[in-house]
Design a protein around this nucleic acid. Structure first.
Length: 491
RNA sequence: CGGGGUAUAGCGUAGCCCGGCUAGCGCGCCUGCUUUGGGAGCAGGAGGUCGCAGGUUCGAAUCCUGCUACCCCGACCA
């Protein structure tokens, strides 16, 4: 059991905050709402990036980079887009400082006022579509399949490490297509990519669906999303993919000539996931002993801790440990040999457990005698002693098992936290007593959705993609409905 | 941005009501010796603008005012 560490039952949000800081993932910075992502946390993000980036490339996308700053006028071009983001934009108004009159520090030089103010991007649709205008003349220029890895700024009132910060890292894909069908297919394809990533790499099951008009991205025709369930029964939006129709093409006058020599507006998509996934990852698997990482995203999959008393043991154990390390590396397993001398084995055990290293090997004099090694897995906290012989294959198998077990555990949890309700009383009761995803009928109006939100804080997380048509009555108004939607309280 | 709370060494805290501090303790840190199969022990040592700025007072960590940051609850949101 970790020292001075809040348990989930005791205070879930405190548990999360403590975990992020004590597992060395991130910390608050001197700038309000902005975090410092520490090396260990960033290493996990890099693993996520690498996996996603490969999936983007495999589906034909290329990376590019667009400016951090966006001319203010660009924003006003697409009406609902401005409306959605205006309240949380950081604005650059000047380009120079000068020594302050009292000689203490610097002040903004009022003479250096920008002719047109610049917005720090909260998302890049506008600058990108302004650019695409010059890239696109005919159907031969399409599709454009571009992604960018970048930071964005949304001036949030209340922030939490990874889950909501004023500045965050993400990727945003922006594609341009000749037809509506192709753009919709792209939107759905990227949703699948996100779902696959969440399930295969993060070991986190997700629901796929699309948003109600209320929850839709500002400027989109349709917003698709994946939603995951956290251990406290709250939902977390883990990724979004938007079909933007011709909204941005019209706003930025991006037209192309078709094969038939007809001029038409270009069809668009955009899609993104952010460092918020780090928060999702923490909350999906971790326990009261600290972080639990799926092997596919762990900075180190295996840590080897040597145990010795005498110097001669140390030499022999180090030699054997390095041998094991080499064998594991030959199988593509990432290994850290923790030979720090200033910490005891017990200390190291606790530290690596807290940081979520999937597998720990402990190697001492007894093991040398017997040709064995002690293997401890983080997900179940089980220990066993194995023959060193063929250890690389055994560990590889174990890592696969851990990855799978984490997914199954999360899936079982989600299944047990998914409820079907048909009456308002049941709905309110389930929300308060069980939380989780609630499938219920809704009359399809924004008013009803808003009322439900006001009364219960629950929102429609998504309208399931796989349409199971089922006649029913709206839990709030009793009006007819043809399909259940998913409600939950959310992050 | 509204309501509440907190701010003392790297971290966690005592002291604050009732001013007298040369600011105490635990963890961590440094040095040495002994240790090492689940957060080692002993000895010695370093480390503080008491969040910031004013004010009251012979004297302020302590009382007053303003500001800032963080936490919790709302509104907003990935």
């Amino acid at each position: 059991m970790a020292k001075n560490f809040t348990t989930r039952e005791d205070n879930y949000s405190q548990w999360y905050n403590d975990l992020v800081i004590k597992a060395d993932l991130a910390e608050n910075s001197a700038v309000r709402g902005c975090m410092v992502i520490k090396p260990y946390g960033y290493a996990i993000w890099e693993k996520m990036q690498a996996a996603l980036d490969k999936m983007f490339k495999d589906t034909g996308h290329s990376n590019a980079y667009f400016p951090l700053f966006i001319p203010k006028s660009f924003f006003s071009r697409e009406a609902s887009h401005v409306e959605g983001f205006a309240k949380e934009c950081a604005v650059v108004t000047h380009y120079r400082l000068k020594a302050s009159p009292d000689g203490k520090g610097v002040v903004v030089d009022e003479d250096a006022k920008l002719e047109e103010e610049l917005i720090v991007r909260p998302t890049s649709e506008t600058i990108i579509w302004d650019t695409y205008r010059n890239w696109i003349q005919s159907y031969r220029d399409l599709p454009i399949l571009v992604n960018q890895w970048a930071n964005v700024v949304r001036w949030e009132m209340r922030t939490r490490l990874f889950l909501r910060t004023a500045e965050f890292l993400w990727q945003e894909g922006h594609t341009a297509h000749a037809t509506s069908e192709e753009a919709i297919a792209e939107t759905q394809q990227m949703l699948e990519v996100y779902a696959t990533f969440a399930e295969e790499f993060m070991a986190m099951p997700v629901l796929k669906g699309f948003k109600s008009p209320n929850e839709r991205f500002a400027g989109a025709i349709e917003t698709y999303c994946i939603e995951a369930l956290m251990q406290d029964g709250k939902a977390l939006q883990a990724g979004t993919s938007h079909f933007l129709g011709q909204n941005f093409a019209k706003a930025f006058d991006v037209k192309f000539l078709s094969k038939e020599n007809k001029l038409d507006y270009v069809w668009a998509t955009s899609w993104g996931v952010s460092t918020r996934l780090m928060g999702a990852l923490v909350m999906a698997h971790s326990d009261d002993n600290g972080l639990v990482l799926p092997p596919k995203l762990a900075p180190f999959q295996v840590v080897i801790v040597p145990i010795y008393k005498k110097d001669e043991d140390k030499i022999r154990i180090t030699e054997k440990a390095l041998e094991i390390k080499k064998a594991l590396i030959s199988k593509g397993i990432s290994v850290k040999f923790d030979d720090r001398e200033s910490y005891t084995p017990g200390y190291k055990f606790n530290e690596h457990e807290f940081r979520g290293v999937p597998v720990r090997l402990a190697l001492g004099p007894r093991d040398l005698e017997n040709g064995t090694v002690e293997v401890a897995r983080r997900d179940t906290m089980e220990k066993e002693v194995l023959q060193i012989q063929d250890i690389e294959n055994k560990i590889q198998h174990l890592l696969d098992q851990i990855q799978d077990n984490l997914y199954q555990k999360a899936l079982t949890f989600r299944d047990n936290s998914t409820h079907y309700v048909d009456t308002w009383e049941e709905f309110v009761k389930t929300l308060d007593e069980k939380a989780g995803f609630i499938y219920a009928h809704w009359d399809g109006t924004a008013e009803t959705e808003q009322k439900i939100k006001e009364e219960t804080k629950a929102t429609i997380r998504l309208i399931p993609l796989i349409e199971k048509k089922e006649d029913g009555k709206c839990i709030y108004t009793g009006k007819p409905s043809t399909q259940r939607v998913v409600f939950a309280r959310s992050y």
